[in-house]
Amino acid sequence: MDWDRIEGNWKSFKGKAKQQWGRLTDDDLDVVEGRREELEGRLQRYYGFEKDRARNEVDQWLKSL
């Protein structure tokens, strides 16, 4: 799956993102609006991930979909 598909259908993927990263609130996910960089930034903020780790987390999540 590619990120363009996620971005275009963000409303249907929000729940899956919430399951993966439970610290993110619905408001956070509304702000993300399918933007990968925004999601990675929120993961850095809430989980304390380094930039590379946040990118890897999103990559792994993308592969699992």
Rank of each mutant, 00 (worst) to 15 (best):
L29H: 12
E38Q: 12
D52Q: 03
R36T: 10
G8T: 03
D2V: 02
K18G: 03
L43P: 10
G34S: 07
L39M: 12
A54E: 07
S12F: 08
D4N: 01
G48A: 05
E33V: 02
E37L: 10
M1K: 06
G48Y: 05
F49G: 05
Y46D: 15
E50T: 12
G8V: 03
G48H: 04
V58L: 11
D2S: 09
Q60I: 07
W3V: 06
L24Y: 09
G41V: 00
L29F: 08
R53Q: 13
V32G: 12
E40Q: 14
K14Q: 14
W3L: 06
D59G: 06
M1P: 02
G15D: 14
N9T: 03
V58H: 09
E57C: 10
W10E: 10
W61K: 06
D4V: 00
N9W: 03
K18Y: 08
G34Y: 05
W10K: 08
D28H: 09
E50A: 14
E7P: 00
N56L: 12
D30T: 06
A54W: 05
G34D: 07
G15I: 13
D52M: 01
S12K: 10
Y46Q: 14
D26H: 00
R53D: 09
V32W: 03
R45F: 12
T25L: 01
D4Y: 00
Q19T: 05
L39P: 09
F49V: 07
D59V: 04
A17W: 01
D30W: 01
R5S: 09
L65F: 05
Y47L: 07
S12H: 04
R35H: 11
R23V: 07
W61G: 07
W61D: 05
D2K: 13
D59E: 15
R53G: 02
V32P: 11
R35M: 03
R55H: 06
D27K: 04
V58W: 07
R42Y: 11
D59A: 13
G34V: 02
S64D: 11
V31K: 11
A17H: 04
K16S: 07
